[in-house]
Each structure stands twice: as structure tokens, then as C-alpha cells.
Amino acid sequence: MTVLQRTSLFDLYKSYGGKVIDFGGWELPVQFSSIKEEHEAVRTRAGLFDVSHMGEFEVKGPEALSFLQLTMTNDVSKLSDGQAQYTAMCYEDGGTVDDLLIYRRAENDYLLVVNASNIEKDFDWLKSHVTEGVELINISDHIGQLALQGPLSEKVLQKLTDTDLSKIGFFRFEENVDLNGLSALVSRTGYTGEDGFEIYLDEKDAPELWAKILEAGEPEGILPCGLGARDTLRFEARLALYGQELTKDITPIEAGIGFVVKTDKETPFIGQEVLARQKAEGAPRKLVGIEMIDKGIPRSHYEVLKNGEKIGEVTTGTQSPTLKKNLGLALIETEYAELGTEVEVQIRQKTLKAVVVKAPFYKKG
């Protein structure tokens, strides 16, 4: 029997009404109250997520930047101290190893934040490219991560610190922030389409901070949130999820994150040849938004058809809690990706009509 991994907050879930599920080998809360309530709290107020299952690697040494330039699609040389960057790692054929965040702490000192289900794979892949002058350390087991998301996030977190959080800009971070006596790295990147903060600290301190944030946010109507709302929120904002919009068989260009692929940077990177060709000539497939015309909800891996022929499949789909529409993201042949194109989705035994629409489906403000 597989033993599921747990974060340091596991013992707290029950007291907040958490319903846990197996998520990629982790026992994590899918919801506390309800997915819709938690989704709405983040869109209008604030919600707190335990994302301690995410992976963290340190990359240090005189050759750290050269190593990252080789293994990352984005241009890491553009980062300054205290700045974060979204990027991808690719195989030679352009397929995606993972999408991740890089934090530049100092010259030759970087923090990488990777997807939980890919920790071991990513570490092994990076390790296979390490050369002299590069130190790669997996610190995932020692780090707790909380994500406070929503328009009132700054107001809530500011109650716990003297650091002026308004000075932490988008894709910026500050280290050694004192949060109610606990030291943390606080960044502002977000995975919900709303303003918010990611808080990295010693995993032993995470449960105490979780309780303090929820207590501080009570007057603002903050809610503890689970994986269900995390997924519907990121889906509405068209933020990719590895294993769905991105896989070893899907390139960043196909997945619509071509902005993290800098094919003109000075240092060649792994997968550059294929990705440069796709950028110049167009990729054979494209990730698009679809809205159901007929009644039905598109789900992951449902086939997308045109005139009865398969042209792709749904990567993520649900009834949007914000828009109250049945929507999906689908990876389809590029020739059918134009807005307004009618397609069909195979939902169980029925072939139901849908139309290609603009995504993201939601933008804050």
C-alpha cells in the first residue's frame, strides 16, 4: 500500500473542516467549506492555501547562471536580486519537463520552485546537467509554503508585519520578513488571477503562521482553501497546470506560454531548436478556450472533434464559478483554433457542440 506524503499542516486540516484526497501522492485538502465558497472568497476577499507540497531547490556557485541559462527557456540573466521569473524546462524535442519559478536571491544564488508531482524527476534531470561550479540542493522537505490570495491579501498580511508589503511589487520578493515573530521569504506572483503572496518558511513554523493569518483575516472574511478552488481559480485565469496543459508531449509554445521561451538569448538552451522553429513557423497544436453551446461540462481528456474527426482534447474543463458557464481549455490542431470556430466535445456517449472563445476567461478588475 502506498503511504501518502503529508505537509506539516496535516493535523490542522480536520479542525478547519478539511476534506482530504490523494493528490499526486500527497494527502491534501480538496476543500474546507465548499469549492464555490472558497473560489468566491479569493475573487472578492482573501483565501489561504497550504502549498507546502511544492518543491524547492537551491542553485548556487560561480557557474549557477550558466547552468540555469542552459536548462531554462527564459532569460535568467535578466533577473536582479529580489526578482522572480516564470520559466519552463524542456527536453531536446521541446516537450516540457516542468514549469517553475526562479527567485534570484543574490549573484550566484537562486531558489527554484517546482511542481510537487515533479520534484524527484526535476531534480534528477537538473542533476544530470550539473557541471563544476554548480551546487544543486533539494530543500523541499524543510520548506513550508502558504499562499494568501485575493484582493484583501495585503490588508490581512500587513497586520502581522512591520515590513511595508506594498513595496513588494509583482514578481518581486523580500527575505527575512518578520511575520508575527516567524521569519519568511514573501513573494508576490500568484496562481489564481488575483493579487496575493507566497510565504516560504521553515516547515515546522507553517502551522502556527496558518492559524495566525486566518485569525488576522477573520474580519475580512478570509477562508481556508483547498485544491478544488485552486484549480478553478487558475483555470479561469488560464494559468497552466503541469500534467494537463503542459506535459512531456506538449511544448510551452503549444500551451500558450511562449512568452517564457526566449529563443534569442545569448546562451543556447535545451530544446531551443524545436521551440525556435515553432515560434517562427507556428506550432501544430494550440491551446484554446472553448465554451459549451450544448448542455454539458467538458472534462480533462475528453475528445474534441470537427465534423466527427478528432482534432484534439480537453486539458481542463469545469463550470466556471465566476462566469457560471461550462468552459474548457483544449489543445487542438492549429487550423481550427480561430475564435468563433464551432467544434464538438465527446461527453460520454454524446457529441455536444462548443465554440472556440477567448481565454483567459477572467481577468481581475
Rank of each mutant, 00 (worst) to 15 (best):
253 I>Q: 10
317 G>Q: 01
219 P>Y: 08
77 S>V: 00
244 Q>R: 14
90 C>L: 07
189 T>C: 13
110 Y>C: 06
341 T>Q: 09
303 E>G: 07
327 L>G: 05
132 E>Q: 15
34 S>R: 06
154 E>P: 01
342 E>Y: 12
39 H>A: 08
84 A>D: 10
212 K>Q: 15
134 V>W: 06
315 T>A: 13
210 W>T: 02
238 R>P: 00
309 E>I: 12
39 H>E: 07
146 L>D: 02
42 V>M: 07
260 V>G: 03
243 G>H: 05
201 L>M: 12
132 E>T: 15
213 I>Y: 00
357 V>Q: 01
345 V>L: 04
127 K>N: 13
237 A>T: 07
145 Q>E: 14
91 Y>Q: 12
289 G>I: 10
317 G>V: 06
198 E>P: 04
276 A>L: 13
269 F>M: 13
156 V>Q: 02
157 L>D: 06
261 V>C: 11
277 R>D: 09
106 A>P: 00
209 L>I: 03
240 A>I: 08
326 N>G: 06
229 A>K: 05
249 D>P: 04
97 V>D: 05
136 L>V: 08
222 I>W: 04
346 Q>T: 05
262 K>D: 14
233 L>V: 04
54 M>W: 01
230 R>S: 06
133 G>F: 09
322 T>F: 10
31 Q>W: 07
353 K>L: 07
169 G>Y: 01
54 M>P: 01
194 E>W: 05
183 S>I: 13
349 Q>Y: 08
221 G>C: 07
139 I>N: 09
53 H>G: 04
155 K>G: 09
193 G>A: 02
258 G>I: 06
55 G>Y: 07
162 D>L: 12
30 V>P: 00
281 E>R: 15
257 I>R: 05
331 L>M: 11
51 V>F: 09
332 I>N: 02
29 P>M: 03
308 G>A: 03
325 K>W: 03
102 I>E: 03
185 L>V: 14
108 N>P: 03
93 D>K: 15
171 F>I: 11
303 E>M: 11
338 E>R: 15
249 D>R: 14
238 R>A: 15
221 G>A: 07
200 Y>R: 13
352 L>Y: 01
130 V>C: 13
52 S>A: 08
193 G>V: 04
109 D>M: 08
101 L>E: 01
37 E>Y: 03
163 T>C: 13
352 L>A: 09
111 L>C: 08
206 A>P: 06
40 E>P: 02
321 P>H: 07
309 E>W: 02
297 I>N: 04
352 L>C: 02
194 E>G: 06
105 R>I: 11
8 S>K: 15
313 E>V: 08
86 Y>K: 11
192 T>K: 04
67 F>L: 05
322 T>V: 10
277 R>V: 12
268 P>E: 10
20 V>L: 12
72 M>F: 07
22 D>I: 02
188 R>I: 09
77 S>G: 09
34 S>I: 03
187 S>R: 07
206 A>R: 08
107 E>C: 10
113 V>T: 14
